[in-house]
């Protein structure tokens, strides 16, 4: 594990990278980043943003706003915010972004939860790794 370098080239080393949880399971892509300036005006990464709510605006154009609009319509809350992973759970940055928590604790996988509950767990054998 490489740890986190103090300065990162966000576009090259963070954006569109795979996020991996503490058990090695895949969480999401880094669809966008939340940046905050400090007092001296330097930008700091404060969170990883993910899901259609983050990808749509970054995509831009008609297709991007269409993605965002569909995502908003499908959410129950009046003013939905994109999936957010606070930067303080990140433990390493290499070919993927590693976290110190489990993916289930992040509560950002809406589609995964829905498909698991409504389709996959209703099929026999959903709880077992593939075996002979």
């Amino acid at each position: 594990m490489t740890g986190i370098p103090r300065t990162l080239e966000a576009k090259l080393q963070l954006l569109d990278h795979q996020v991996i949880d503490v058990h090695g399971e895949m969480v999401c892509m880094v669809d966008d980043l939340e940046l905050r300036p400090d007092r001296r005006g330097h930008l700091h990464v404060t969170a990883i943003l993910t899901g259609p709510g983050a990808l749509g605006p970054r995509w831009g154009g008609r297709f991007g706003s269409w993605i965002t609009a569909v995502w908003r319509r499908l959410r129950e809350d009046a003013d939905p915010v994109p999936g957010r992973i606070a930067w303080n759970v990140v433990t390493g940055v290499d070919s993927g972004i590693r976290l110190n928590c489990a993916r289930a604790d992040l509560a950002i996988e809406g589609l995964e939860t829905w498909t698991a509950a409504h389709i996959v767990t209703r099929i026999p054998g959903a709880g077992h790794e593939s075996d002979a």
Binding site: E25, T115, A116, I119, V120, I123, A126, G127
Partner: peptide, 26 residues
């Protein structure tokens, strides 16, 4: 599809842990 979106994929985890991947294949 799963790799593009960063979803968990693979036969090394139970289907319910890679639900979107299995739904795509279905």
């Amino acid at each position: 599809i799963s790799q593009y979106f960063g979803w968990q994929w693979g036969k090394f985890v139970a289907p319910r842990r890679a639900a979107r991947f299995h739904v795509v294949m279905l």
